[in-house]
Write a protein that binds this DNA or RNA. Structure first.
Lengths: 258, 258
DNA sequence: AACGCTGTTCAGTCATCCTGAACAATATGA
DNA sequence: TCATATTGTTCAGGATGACTGAACAGCGTT
């Protein structure tokens, strides 16, 4: 367990709790329900161990059993996650402005923070007339192809960006930018313009615009985006939309002390 | 630990995992950050034990340290909670209809399920023109004073309702119904009308209408509500609003197989 | 009916998690 | 400024309890 240093090192970590969390992560990333045996193979521990963990998590509704008898994430996590999101001052302060943005742009609005090199959506507001339904997507590994992701790439410190870009970049559509030079050029453009565009790069037919939110220290704190049908927003109309978006992003930055 | 039966009983539960979950619940219900010592007192375990748990949870971002050095819920729970909500078929099926409802009523829409005798919001949609900002509220112990809560009271099996009503009912405003006869009369009215009203009963100035969603077995599955300013929706206008609400609730019921 | 799968049960034992006390690092107060 | 209190952290030691591994039961399929 300990490294080759031989020096005795104290680890203030409770192994079974860690394993339980890992189990939840497995259930999270697998978008389907799973069995005890399957979990035990993935986690590399005995079936009975997984059984005990699952029983414990089920008693607290962190895990639930589906009709098929297999297991998925439980609903108690929904409330807990909502409570965790409420702990974020940004969200409380940004929410009214996001609603304004949804109303004025008439588009779907997302607010995201970067958390452990993952884009995490912390608030979303739908417009009145949803002429267009934005598909829910998984934001893992989409830094190069979503407006939110690009904002983080463009405004994060260099070290952080390089860390992120080390991961392989996936092709989502024919329009997805993969080559490093193209991405660096894109970052450059985003910094000059103050907003990011993703047009058909993640899902064909969907265009998003993104803008940065800065905190009291002048550091990137979050990103806000609007999503719409590509057919509805042509390139020559980016500017007016981007102006509204940037105005609201600036308003949020001001709210949190920038 | 074991009861007085003396019979040896197997408990398939991992104590440390259970303790960790309890710690998260304490952080959830306390709407502020807490210290190690404070947590150890509440949980009734040694400080160093809490320290180990917190370190483990922090490493996974289930807990984070605030600027003050104390601890709250971590942001990894946000994503996990969202993933858990996505596991709910109801939500996927209801979401488009909720958007229609927000558009047609021009009000703020909530979708909730009952989970372990707690109202759990699983989806929300904001209208375009938010002439009015709905305050976020904590839905614990609000069965008697919110439209969503009342729907659950009215359409749940008797045993379940009695279980819920055993808890003491809190006064939120002068309009909050507390007396059992008044509540039973209200339940009766809701069943006749097919929708619930909460006018200034939780927060003065806020009115909500709620309607039930039934599943394939004809049982109450969820509730949907719209929220608005009381000044904006007088009692004589409940009916047309309620008609739209009931229509959409019925559409969702149909979607899930009723 | 035999087989392959599932999840469950349970005794044993070894690792590990908790206790409890001492320590350091900050607040608080005299 | 120096005590005092209270914080979070460190760590040795030992009882506890969590994991192993094998056997069992309950399915559906072949």
């Amino acid at each position: 367990m300990d490294s080759e240093t031989g020096k005795k090192q104290f680890l203030y970590t409770v192994a079974s709790v860690d394993r339980a969390i890992e189990l939840l992560f497995v259930l999270e990333s697998a978008a389907r329900d799973m069995g005890i045996t399957e979990l035990s193979k993935i986690l590399g521990v005995q079936k009975s161990t997984v059984h005990n963990l699952v029983q414990t998590l089920m008693a607290r509704d962190f895990v639930r059993q589906t009709d098929s008898g297999r297991f998925t994430l439980g609903f108690r996590l929904v409330r807990l996650g909502a409570a965790a999101a409420d702990r974020l001052d940004l969200r409380r302060l940004a929410d009214p402005i996001l609603r304004e943005l949804a109303a004025e742009s008439n588009e779907y609005v997302l607010l995201a923070v970067l958390h452990r090199n993952e884009v995490t959506i912390v608030d979303s507001v739908a417009p009145q007339r949803s002429t267009f339904l934005v598909p829910r997507i998984d934001f893992s590994h989409t830094f190069h192809c979503t407006a939110l992701g690009k904002i983080f790439l463009a405004y994060l410190p260099d070290a952080r960006r390089q860390e992120i870009l080390q991961n392989p970049l996936a092709h989502f559509t024919p329009y997805t930018l993969i080559e490093e030079p193209a991405i660096l050029a894109e970052i450059d453009k985003i910094r000059r313009q103050g907003y990011a565009v993703s047009c058909n790069e993640t899902i064909e037919g969907v265009t998003c615009l993104g803008a940065p939110i800065f905190n009291a220290h002048g550091k990137l704190e979050a990103a806000v985006s609007i999503s719409t049908a590509s057919a509805q927003l042509s390139a020559e109309n980016y500017q007016p939309m981007a102006d509204i978006l940037k105005e609201k992003a600036a308003a949020i930055s001001k709210q949190i002390g920038f």
